[in-house]
Measured scan of single mutants.
Amino acid sequence: NQASVVANQLIPINTALTLVMMRAEVVTPMGIPAVDIPRLVSMQVNRAVPLGTTLMPDMVKGYA
């Protein structure tokens, strides 16, 4: 099973992602693959992402 990107903290809307905000976890359903974490750094979320939420492609501006 491939790990997905999960929020390590509450990420407010329009926040630029940093490594500290994300962790890799095997979850269902799968979200953004953990291998993409370096690519996500400095991209912004388009909604508030609660702690423990799996990041989906439509939550990150410019990802999809």
Rank of each mutant, 00 (worst) to 15 (best):
N1W: 10
N1G: 15
N1Q: 15
N1I: 15
N1T: 15
Q2T: 13
Q2Y: 15
Q2R: 03
Q2I: 13
Q2S: 14
A3C: 15
A3P: 13
A3N: 13
S4F: 02
S4M: 02
S4K: 02
S4G: 05
V5M: 02
V5K: 01
V6Q: 04
V6L: 11
A7G: 03
A7N: 02
A7H: 01
A7S: 09
A7C: 06
A7Y: 01
A7E: 01
A7T: 12
N8V: 10
N8H: 14
Q9F: 12
Q9L: 11
Q9Y: 11
Q9D: 15
L10D: 13
L10K: 07
L10T: 10
I11G: 01
I11C: 04
I11K: 00
I11W: 02
P12D: 13
P12R: 08
P12E: 10
P12Y: 09
P12C: 07
I13Q: 12
I13H: 12
I13W: 13
I13M: 12
I13S: 12
I13F: 10
N14P: 02
N14E: 09
N14L: 05
N14R: 09
T15W: 06
T15Q: 10
T15V: 11
T15E: 07
A16R: 06
A16D: 04
A16Q: 14
L17M: 11
L17S: 00
T18W: 03
T18P: 00
T18I: 04
L19G: 03
L19A: 08
L19F: 07
L19Q: 04
V20N: 11
V20L: 14
V20D: 06
V20P: 03
V20E: 06
V20G: 08
M21W: 02
M21P: 00
M21I: 04
M21D: 03
M21Q: 04
M22K: 00
M22G: 00
M22T: 02
M22Q: 01
M22D: 00
M22P: 00
M22C: 03
R23T: 04
R23W: 03
R23G: 07
R23C: 04
A24D: 15
A24M: 07
A24S: 14
A24N: 14
E25G: 05
E25Q: 05
E25V: 05
E25W: 05
E25Y: 04
E25D: 14
E25N: 08
V26M: 14
V26Q: 14
V26P: 10
V27N: 03
V27H: 05
V27E: 03
V27W: 02
V27L: 09
V27C: 05
V27F: 02
V27G: 03
T28K: 03
T28M: 06
T28H: 06
T28E: 15
T28P: 02
T28W: 05
T28Q: 14
P29R: 03
P29H: 07
P29I: 09
P29W: 08
P29G: 05
P29N: 14
P29S: 07
P29Q: 13
P29C: 15
M30N: 11
M30L: 15
M30F: 13
M30H: 10
G31N: 01
G31A: 03
G31L: 01
G31I: 02
I32D: 01
I32Y: 02
I32F: 03
I32E: 00
I32P: 01
P33W: 10
P33D: 15
P33L: 06
P33I: 08
A34C: 07
V35M: 11
V35F: 10
V35L: 09
V35P: 07
V35R: 04
V35Q: 15
D36E: 10
D36I: 05
D36M: 05
D36Q: 09
D36A: 10
D36L: 05
I37G: 04
I37D: 00
I37F: 04
I37L: 13
P38D: 07
P38Y: 09
P38T: 12
R39S: 08
R39L: 13
R39P: 03
R39E: 04
R39Q: 05
L40K: 00
L40G: 00
L40T: 01
V41N: 06
V41A: 08
V41C: 07
S42G: 11
S42L: 07
S42N: 06
S42W: 12
S42Q: 06
S42T: 08
S42H: 10
M43L: 12
M43C: 05
M43G: 04
M43I: 05
Q44D: 05
Q44C: 09
Q44I: 13
Q44W: 12
V45G: 01
V45D: 00
V45F: 01
N46E: 12
N46Y: 14
N46P: 03
N46A: 08
N46S: 14
N46W: 15
R47I: 06
R47D: 10
A48V: 08
A48S: 08
A48H: 13
A48N: 08
A48Q: 10
A48P: 07
A48K: 07
A48E: 11
V49C: 04
V49F: 02
V49A: 05
V49N: 01
V49S: 02
V49P: 01
P50N: 14
P50T: 13
P50V: 09
P50F: 15
P50L: 09
P50A: 09
L51R: 13
L51N: 09
L51F: 13
L51G: 14
G52L: 05
G52D: 11
G52I: 02
G52R: 06
G52P: 00
T53Y: 14
T53K: 08
T53M: 14
T53L: 15
T53R: 11
T54M: 04
T54Y: 02
T54Q: 04
T54H: 03
T54D: 01
L55F: 10
L55Y: 01
L55I: 15
L55G: 01
L55W: 01
M56E: 09
M56A: 13
M56C: 11
M56L: 08
M56K: 08
M56Y: 12
M56I: 13
M56N: 08
P57G: 13
P57H: 11
P57F: 10
P57L: 06
D58A: 09
D58W: 07
D58M: 14
D58C: 15
M59V: 08
M59Y: 13
M59A: 11
M59D: 13
M59C: 05
M59N: 08
V60W: 02
V60N: 00
V60L: 09
V60D: 02
V60G: 01
V60A: 02
K61R: 11
K61P: 06
K61E: 11
K61G: 06
G62C: 12
G62M: 14
G62E: 14
G62F: 07
G62W: 11
G62R: 06
G62Q: 14
G62T: 08
G62D: 10
Y63C: 04
Y63T: 04
Y63I: 04
Y63P: 03
Y63N: 05
A64T: 15
A64N: 09
A64I: 15
